[in-house]
Design a protein around this nucleic acid. Structure first.
Lengths: 207, 207, 207, 207
DNA sequence: GATGAATGAGGTTTCATTCAT
DNA sequence: AATGAATGAAACCTCATTCAT
C-alpha cells in the first residue's frame, strides 16, 4: 500500500492549500468573485469541493487570504524603498516596477486585487480598509519627507498625492486587464515605467 | 380630494420608474450590487417588488440603466469640452469639475458607477467596455490635438495619458467613497480641482 | 363625440367576448394552457389584459368556456344521429365526419379540446369528467341498441367499444396535430372517414 | 449499528436517484406535472428539495427521464415482437398485453406517460415527438409486412392503422385512469386484451 | 485527508388577479 | 368598457456549507 500512499501524498498540506489558492485566483480572475462557485475552484484544482473547506473557513476567507498574501508584498516594497535609495524618482520607480512587473508575472492576482478586493472593500470589515490605508499612508509619508526636503511643491497634500499616484497605476493596470490598453514588452515596458514616474513628477506639459 | 389622493397614481409611469431607479442607486451604493436584493430596492421605493419587474427586465438591467443614464453625461461633457475653450488646462478642469461635482451632488451614483460598474466591467457584456473605451478615446483625441499643437511632450502616448488622467480621478473618488480621503468643501473643493489639473500637467515637483 | 363613440363601439359586448375567446383558443393551441399568459391572450386580441377579467372570471374559466362551447356540439351531434338514420355505419360516419371536419375547420379548437382539456380533466372538478362521460355513454347506448338488433357481436361491452371508437378518432387527430400523420383533402378526406368506420366495424383483416 | 444506520447513505447514489424518480412519478400522477412542485417530490421522497437538483437539472428533466426510462420499454417490446411469433394477432396481443399489464403494475407511470407526456408532446423538444413517431413507425412496418403477406386489406395505409391501434389502447387506458371505465381483473383482463386485438382485426360486426 | 451527498436559506423571477383611474 | 399599474403568492433554482463515510 505504500505505493498508493505515495500517489495521495503527492502534495503536502501546504502545497495543497497553495494549489487551491492559485486555482481560486484563476477562477476569481476569470469569472469574478461572486460568479465563482466553490465547485469551480475545486474543479480547477482537481479536488473535491468539500476539500476546500479543509483549508479555508469559507469562500470569503479565500479572497481574504489572497489579499493578505499579496497586499503584504506591496506594503513591504513600499516599506523597503526608503532603504534602497534617497532619490524620490528612484523610489517611485521601484513601486511602479513592482506593480507593473507583478502584472506581467501574475495578471490574475492583479485582476483579483484590483477588481474584487478594491471594489468590495467598502462592505468588508474595517481591517481591510486599514490595510489599504496603510499603503497609501506609507507612500504619503515618503512624499511628505521629500516635500520637507524641498523636492515637492508645498501646496500639495502628500496623502492626496499618494492617491493620485496609485490611481494612475491602478487604471493603467485596469486598461491592461480589460484589454483596452496594450501592455508593452521588454525595453518598452521599462520605458513605460519611467514614463509613469515622469508624468507624476513633471507632468505632461512639454518643457 | 382627487388632488391629495394618496393611494395610487401619485406618480406618472416615468416618475415611478425614476423613483425605483433612484432607490436602486441608494441601495446598490449602500450594500453593493450583489448584496442588494430586489426587495431591498422595492422597500426603499415603498413599492411591491413585483413592480420593479414591471419597469425593468431584471436586476442587471437596473444597473445597466443607471450606467446608461450617467455615463452618457460624462461622455457629453467630454464631447462638448472642445466647444467651450481652446485651452488644455481649461478643458481638463471642466472634466475634473464635472466628476468631483458629481460626487458632491450624488455620491451614491458615483459609488455605483465606480465600484459596481467600472470594476466589474470585465464581466459585463462587451458594449459596456466599449462605452468606457469611447470616453478614454475621446480624451485621447483631445490630448493628441494638443500634442500636435505642441502643448504636450511628444514621447507620450495620448491613450496612455488618458488612462493616467482618469486613474487619478477614479482613485481620488474611491478615497472619498471609502472615507479614507477627506473631500474638501467650498473654495478648497475648487482648489482641489485646480490641483489635480496642475499635477497632471506639471507634475508634483517644485519648480 | 359620436365619432369616437363609434370607434370604441366597433364590437358589441358579446363580440368582444368572442374575440377574446378566439384569441385564447389560438394562444392555448400554440403554447399550451399553462405556458399561456393572460397577457398573451390580450395581445392576440389586441386589448388590455385587464379587460380579459371583465369577460371572464379567471384563466381557468376561459378554458372552461371553450370546453362548454365546443363539447356541446359533439354531444348534440351524437344525440341527433339517431334521428337521421337507422343504419349503424351511417351513424358512425356522421360522428367521424363531424370530428374530422371540425379539425379541418378549426384545428386550434381540436388541439385545445384534445390536449388541454382531456389531459387535465383528471384534476378538474367532477362536472367535466361527467360531460366527457356523457358523450361516451350516449355512443354506448347507440351501440347497445344495435347489439340488441343483432348488428354487433354480443360478447363486446358497448361502453368499452365506445372508448375504442373515440380512441381511434382521438389519436388520428393527435397525429394530424403533431404533424406526424398527414391529413388528407377532398375526396381522400371523405375516403378516410369511411375507412375509419370500416375499420371499426369490420377490422383490418382481408376478407 | 452500522447496518441499521438510518441517517444518511441508506441508499447508493443510483438508488437515491431512483427513489426521487419514483416519488416524482407518484406526485406527477396525482397532481399533474404543472401542479407538482419540486418540494412535493422531495417531500414524497423524504429528502431536501435541494437534493433533487443534485440528481436532475430541473423539473423538466425529471419528466424527460421518466419518459426515456419507460418509452424505451415499449419500443423494445415492439422491436422484439417479430422474433417471438409470425402470427399477426399474436404480435398485437403482445403489445396490448404489455400496455395493459403495465397499467396494472404501475398505473402511475402510465398516467404520467399518457397524460403528461403524450398529450403535451407538441410543446416538447422535437426529439420526443421523434421517439413517439418511431414506435408508430415500427408498428406500421409490422403491419406493412402482413399486408404484403396478404393478411391485411390492401387499401389501408399501415401508418394510419398504427395510429388507430394505439388510439384504441390509449383511450382505454385513459378511461381506466379517469375512473370512467372499469379495468378488469384476472381472466377477464386477459379476455379484454384478446377483445382489443379482435376488434382491431375483425371489427365489431357480428359475423 | 478526501469525497461528494445532503441540506436549506436565500434570492430571482413569473404572472394571475385586483383595482384606481 | 377599458386600461395597465400595482400587488404578492408561488415556484424555481443556486450554491455555500456541513458532515457521514
Amino acid at each position: 500500500m505504500p505505493r498508493t500512499e505515495k500517489k495521495r501524498r503527492k502534495y503536502s498540506a501546504e502545497e495543497k492549500k497553495s494549489l487551491i489558492l492559485n486555482s481560486a485566483i484563476r477562477v476569481f480572475s476569470q469569472k469574478g468573485f461572486h460568479r465563482s462557485r466553490i465547485s469551480d475552484i475545486a474543479d480547477e484544482a482537481g479536488v473535491a469541493y468539500g476539500l476546500v473547506y479543509h483549508y479555508f473557513e469559507n469562500k470569503q476567507e479565500i479572497l481574504h487570504t489572497i489579499f493578505e498574501n499579496n497586499w503584504g508584498l506591496l506594503t513591504k516594497v513600499i516599506d523597503t524603498v526608503e532603504e534602497q535609495t534617497d532619490d524620490l524618482s528612484q523610489k517611485l520607480l521601484l513601486i511602479v516596477s513592482f506593480m507593473l512587473d507583478a502584472y506581467k508575472l501574475a495578471p490574475d492576482i492583479i485582476q483579483v486585487m484590483v477588481m474584487e478586493i478594491a471594489r468590495s472593500s467598502k462592505f468588508l470589515k474595517e481591517p481591510k480598509i486599514e490595510a489599504f490605508e496603510k499603503a497609501f499612508s506609507r507612500l504619503a509619508e515618503i512624499l511628505s519627507h521629500h516635500q520637507k526636503k524641498g523636492d515637492i511643491a508645498t501646496d500639495l497634500e502628500p496623502k492626496f498625492l499618494s492617491y493620485c499616484f496609485f490611481g494612475i497605476l491602478e487604471l493603467i493596470l485596469t486598461g491592461y486587464l480589460l484589454g483596452t490598453l496594450q501592455p508593452k514588452n521588454g525595453e518598452q515596458h521599462e520605458a513605460c515605467k519611467a514614463s509613469l514616474v515622469s508624468i507624476f513628477l513633471h507632468g505632461i506639459i512639454k518643457r
